[in-house]
Design a protein around this nucleic acid. Structure first.
Lengths: 123, 123
DNA sequence: GTGGATGCAAACTCTTTGCACCTTG
DNA sequence: CAAGGTGCAAAGAGTTTGCATCCAC
């Protein structure tokens, strides 16, 4: 049975109110505003549970911690800024690239990640 | 000035003779066949140099070390098996998804990764 | 009151770095 | 022989885990 704790609720609320994927560390800092004593281990434990339950989706980026965002935002492509390191959601698209995979591979999911400079960092 | 050492050559040769992206650990194990005393730090240092020189490309996968492969294989999409954790190259395709990114983001590169079960693990 | 959840610190994994020694050019 | 490269071990970063305590149910 899963309990409804103040920590879990705070962590979830942080992600519900953010429009870009966050690192565990970022989640911790934001959630501490509501639950000051919050520990990083609790953040990791809850992100894992929420991900396993399909509530969160993950975005992996090269040489940096994984990012998390609400799965109900739908499948997204992402963009990592090579200057500020933030990761952004791209607009939804109808691109379904599974057709590019040989038949004997069973595709369950996919991820598209762009690299470059975000608007703020490109001038 | 860059020197031609036995270790660097062995590391490079391992990657030239492999058809899927390898982890630093895998590179170490294979290269040790030629250079028994080889250390993991040397592998990391050389992978970094070879990557910076554009000779290798990297593939990042969730919750696992980065993989490296020869950049001259061309731009590839990849497939990670969720059972055996190996990463495979997909056939080349003409898919160029930069059109899916808003204009004010400057795209320099992109990566497509599929998850699922490879042929060997799907029966 | 019982079992899940938390916080802390220690443990772990992956990667980088400091340093003395070695090797290439 | 000078500068770059190597191997080892220690240090860092990110993540997980053990354990005593806490608290939601």
């Amino acid at each position: 049975m899963i309990r409804r704790t103040e920590q879990r609720y705070a962590i979830r609320r942080v992600l519900e109110h953010t429009v870009r994927p966050l690192t565990p560390q970022e989640v911790l800092e934001k959630a501490k505003a509501t639950v000051p004593g919050l520990g990083i281990a609790t953040v990791y434990r809850n992100l894992k549970v929420l991900h396993q339950d399909g509530i969160l989706s993950t975005v992996e980026v090269p040489g940096a911690p994984a990012r998390y965002e609400m799965a109900n935002r739908g499948h997204r492509h992402h963009f990592q800024c090579e200057s500020c390191n933030r990761v952004f959601d791209m607009p939804k698209s109808s691109f379904t690239p599974s057709a590019l995979v040989p038949e004997n591979f069973k595709v369950r999911d996919h991820q598209v990640l762009f690299y470059g400079f975000c608007p703020e960092c490109s001038h």
